[in-house]
Amino acid sequence: MQILVTGGAGFIGSHIVDALLEEGHHVVVVDDLSSGREENLNPAARFYHMDICSSELEGVFRDEKVELVVHHAAQIDVRHSVASPGEDARINIQGLLNLLQNGLRHGLKGFIFASSGGVVYGEPERMPVTEDFPKGPLSPYGVSKLSSEFYLYYYARVHGLPYIALRYGNVYGPRQDPHGEAGVVAIFGQKMLRGETPTIYGDGEQLRDYVYVGDVVRANLLALRKIMNGINLQPVDGIDALAYNIGTGLGTSVNELFRLLADITGYTGRVVYGPERTGELKRIYLDAARAARELDWKPQVDLREGLKRTVAHLAQKL
């Protein structure tokens, strides 16, 4: 297939590009390199240095005859979304609509969307969280992810565009940026390898569902297969019908994550505790039973093994 991967120079997107190329697809990457890196780009993919909101995007759809979009380009900084909700909406909502409108004009056959199981549900009352749990995003970033799923639902029901939304847990692994707020594994790992002191915000008992990037890539490939097979792709029961939690079903505290990484890196220094971040969720981990049933997906890399692979990659970059 002719597949467009937005954000294909980024952490998750670049791994997906590699896997799609290995499966024999023709891959086009659109990335403005605001957070993606040129070193992540696979030379076998055709690269367009472009904002997803650009009017020039139509030329990519036309010239490359794009059949399917895997959408990972986004503004992902929760604190930035709070400070600049308009900018968050421009990138995450207007950018999505630019892709969808151009897709309609040029015969797009399917759309895979990187949503977030960490923000669309808000502060859940029971764990692990299933896809039909009430939604209550607590940041503009979460609102933009949930809004995007509603737009996809509309395009599916009214225009017949098949889609799948993958609600990721906390994705980690090689190529994760240690300089952003979302990459706690990379941040802690790099500091420990350098002998620097990591900071835990709050009491460290916040629970998160850490899922390895290789498992996330596999979820995208299985979603692609489902779309290509055209089975049960009408979301007649609302946005949750074609949404899949991609997580391990296990909650790991930041304190436990620190202990695991310290053991793997050999770090013997201390940790500093900083003030709790406003709006940060106390706990979230995901029930991925639907992905197991309908996509034949289950996580294969446990946390310790995934952390070891991540630390080995970080060590190479020092």
Rank of each mutant, 00 (worst) to 15 (best):
I3W: 01
T6G: 04
A9P: 05
I12N: 03
G24C: 11
G24Y: 08
V28P: 02
S35W: 06
R37G: 00
E39D: 13
N40W: 11
L41R: 11
A44K: 15
A45T: 01
R46K: 07
Y48K: 04
M50S: 06
S54E: 10
E56P: 02
E56Y: 14
E56S: 15
V60E: 01
V60H: 01
F61W: 00
F61G: 08
D63T: 03
D63F: 05
V66I: 12
V66F: 07
E67M: 03
E67F: 01
L68S: 02
Q75I: 02
I76P: 03
D77K: 03
D77A: 13
R79C: 08
H80V: 07
H80I: 02
V82P: 00
I91S: 15
N92K: 05
L96K: 10
L96A: 09
N98A: 02
L99P: 04
G103C: 06
R105G: 03
H106R: 04
G107C: 02
L108T: 03
I112N: 02
I112S: 01
G122C: 09
G122N: 06
P128R: 05
E131T: 08
P134N: 12
P134M: 08
K135W: 09
P137K: 09
G142W: 06
G142T: 04
V143M: 13
S144R: 04
S147M: 12
S147N: 04
F150S: 11
Y153K: 10
Y154Q: 13
V158Y: 13
H159M: 10
Y163T: 03
N170E: 15
G173P: 12
G183S: 14
G183F: 11
V184F: 14
I187N: 14
I187D: 14
Q190P: 05
K191L: 12
R194K: 15
G195T: 14
E196H: 07
P198R: 13
G202D: 07
D209S: 10
Y210V: 10
V213R: 03
G214H: 13
G214K: 15
V217P: 07
R218A: 12
R218P: 04
A219C: 12
L222G: 09
L224I: 11
N229H: 11
I231Y: 08
N232P: 00
N232F: 04
N232D: 15
N232T: 02
L233A: 11
L233W: 14
V236F: 10
D237P: 00
I239L: 12
D240L: 00
A241P: 01
A243M: 11
A243H: 07
N245E: 06
I246Y: 11
G247Y: 01
G249P: 09
L250Q: 15
L250M: 13
S253W: 08
V254D: 03
N255A: 06
R259T: 05
L261Y: 14
T265C: 05
T265A: 07
T268G: 12
G269S: 05
V272M: 02
Y273K: 04
G274I: 04
T278S: 14
G279Q: 07
E280C: 08
L281V: 09
Y285D: 06
L286E: 14
A289L: 06
A289I: 06
R290Y: 02
A291S: 10
V311P: 12
H313I: 03
Q316W: 12
K317W: 08
